[in-house]
């Protein structure tokens, strides 16, 4: 015992202090990275952002004017993605958690969902082009882009919904069943409402992922700078617009301005997700 103490190079106190210093440094590094990204983008981009930048159409391929059609385009794509991924994802999650028998098929479905999440977005984009744009004939359009985005965020939605449904306590389900409710009544009236905050958060976080996605929509949504009139028309999403502005050397300032707006939207969405979750938790009195 005393020998062990003597052979130690550093005292336990020193080790402890070094360890906490390293851990603290890691945490600070994370925050610094975030702050420097936000700082750089906002610093470089804030100059061009004004009302007309947000609400005007671009002129001269985006070298002048605003980014309004790209904002609209992004919102439309995301809306289609959410409206399709939400129900499909929740449905799949309900099936997997409540109905699926514990067998090989179920395990394969779960595994499939995992795999879908792992597919690189550019591959999904290519598939979207082949299947939606060409094979189904949707062309470059909001529908094609939105559905391709849905392919991408679907596994996240399924998983978030599964987690949310699983956290609904068995006590609640038993309470409902004991009153004579059927399984479906229980799921629809007790399980899903209780899981809603979790599901909503999952879907919104999926949205945050979708909104910044470039590769998927590049081959599916087109790059039109006109305002779309229906979901069958092409649009240019904000990140793609940003990519073109930067890669074609059209305007660095406009690129940073677009980036700042995109960043703002993502942060807003994440903030909304957290707020909604807090609100539901406070309202239902649930504390997880």
């Amino acid at each position: 015992m005393s020998a062990a103490v003597r052979t130690r190079i550093f005292s336990p106190d020193t080790t402890d202090r070094v360890a906490s210093l390293l851990l603290w440094a890691s945490a600070i590094a994370t925050v610094l990275i975030l702050l420097s990204i936000i700082g750089t983008i906002v610093y470089r981009g804030i100059g061009v952002i004004d009302i007309s930048f947000l609400l005007d159409s671009p002129r001269m391929s985006g070298a002048e004017g605003g980014i309004f059609p790209a904002i609209v385009g992004t919102l439309c794509l995301v809306a289609v993605a959410i409206l399709t991924a939400g129900p499909v994802g929740v449905g799949a999650a309900v099936y997997l958690t409540e109905y699926a028998p514990d067998n090989g098929v179920t395990h394969m479905i779960t595994f499939g969902v995992e795999c879908l999440a792992g597919i690189p977005s550019i591959v999904i984009g290519l598939f979207g082009y082949a299947f939606l744009v060409v094979y189904l004939g949707f062309g470059f359009s909001i529908l094609s882009g939105g559905l391709a985005l849905m392919f991408m965020i679907l596994p996240w939605t399924v998983r978030a919904s599964e987690e949310a449904i699983k956290t609904v306590s068995g006590d609640l389900k038993e309470g409902s069943v004991a009153l004579g409710a059927t399984k479906w009544q229980t799921i629809r009236q007790v399980v899903l409402p209780s899981a809603l905050p979790g599901i909503t958060t999952g879907v919104i976080l999926g949205t945050g992922k979708a909104i910044g996605e470039t590769a998927v929509i590049m081959y599916t949504a087109g790059s039109s700078l006109l305002l779309p009139e229906s979901i069958f028309e092409p649009v240019r999403a904000l990140p793609y617009h940003l990519y073109i502005l930067a890669s074609e050397g059209i305007s660095d300032d406009m690129a940073y301005g677009s980036a700042a707006v995109l960043l703002g939207m993502v942060l807003l969405i994440n903030f909304t997700a957290v707020t909604i979750q807090r609100y539901y938790q406070a309202r239902s009195g649930l504390r997880h």
């Binding site: 038993e174 069943v177 004991a178 009153l179 004579g180 059927t182 007790v190 409402p193 239902s284």
Partner: peptide, 19 residues
């Protein structure tokens, strides 16, 4: 369904629905 309607049950942990 009818059986459980006629034989009610109260559980160990209070389990009101979140409504």
């Amino acid at each position: 369904v009818v059986l459980r309607k006629r034989i009610g049950m109260v559980f160990q942990k209070p389990n009101p629905f979140p409504m």
